[in-house]
């Protein structure tokens, strides 16, 4: 564990807590893409298959349980909760996210580090996570008013993978044979997808104006 990875995990944890806070306290999911939340639930489900068979540390297990629990409960809130679901903007959240899954699965079957079920599922979760934010970014561009919590949620979600890139650079220089092109490239693609959001988020913060994304 290094400071970059800890910062990344904490940022990721905060992004999930900000979203749960928004949904649980103000009972609203306005501006949140259910498609992205569903993709993230699939990402965690396929990545943490070994949660009970491959014990790494208490920290690792607890964080996996938090990410699994939060992502599925957010999907449950947005689908089932009688108040929250009313604020879900299904007419605007129209990204065909299931179309994202097939290319990721095919790519995972072709490009992976080891052709085993678990490794292919893990690689699939990496590719899927890289594109999981797309429905959310599309929704942000459609809904004009981006409230602060939603903006913070997307910002933290993007920042966590940027910290992970620093973590991989650190591990590359401090550990022998630490070379993982698959993870590095998908992590880089994921972070680059946030680039324009980061730009507008920073502009809105610097000029102290409301966050607006160009249509």
């Amino acid at each position: 564990m290094n400071i970059f990875r800890l910062a990344g995990d904490m940022t990721h944890l905060f992004s999930v807590l900000v979203l749960l806070l928004k949904i649980h306290t103000i009972k609203s999911c306005a501006g949140i893409s259910l498609k992205t939340q569903e993709l993230y639930a699939i990402v965690f489900a396929t990545r943490y298959l070994d949660i009970f068979t491959n014990y790494i540390s208490l920290y690792n297990t607890i964080m996996k349980l938090i990410f699994l629990g939060s992502s599925f409960s957010i999907v449950w809130y947005m689908r089932r909760h009688k108040i929250v679901r009313r604020s879900y903007d299904k007419d605007q959240d129209t990204f065909r996210h299931y179309f994202l899954m097939l290319p990721c699965l095919i790519l995972a079957l072709i490009i992976n580090e080891k052709f085993t079920f678990r490794e292919v599922m893990w690689t699939f979760s990496l590719y899927l996570e890289a594109v999981a934010i797309l429905p959310q970014l599309v929704l942000l561009q459609r809904t004009r008013n981006i409230d602060n919590l939603t903006g913070q949620y997307v910002f933290l979600l993007g920042a966590y993978r940027a910290f992970y890139i620093l973590n991989w650079i650190y591990r590359y220089f401090t550990e022998e044979h630490f070379v993982h092109w698959i993870t590095w490239i998908s992590g880089l693609v994921q972070t680059l997808l946030y680039a324009d959001f980061f730009y507008y988020y920073f502009q809105s913060w610097k000029n102290n104006v409301k966050l607006e994304l160009p249509a």
Partner: peptide, 10 residues
């Protein structure tokens, strides 16, 4: 094995 050392990450 090389690939295991990524599995300690989330």
């Amino acid at each position: 094995e090389a690939y295991t050392d990524l599995k300690d990450e989330l």
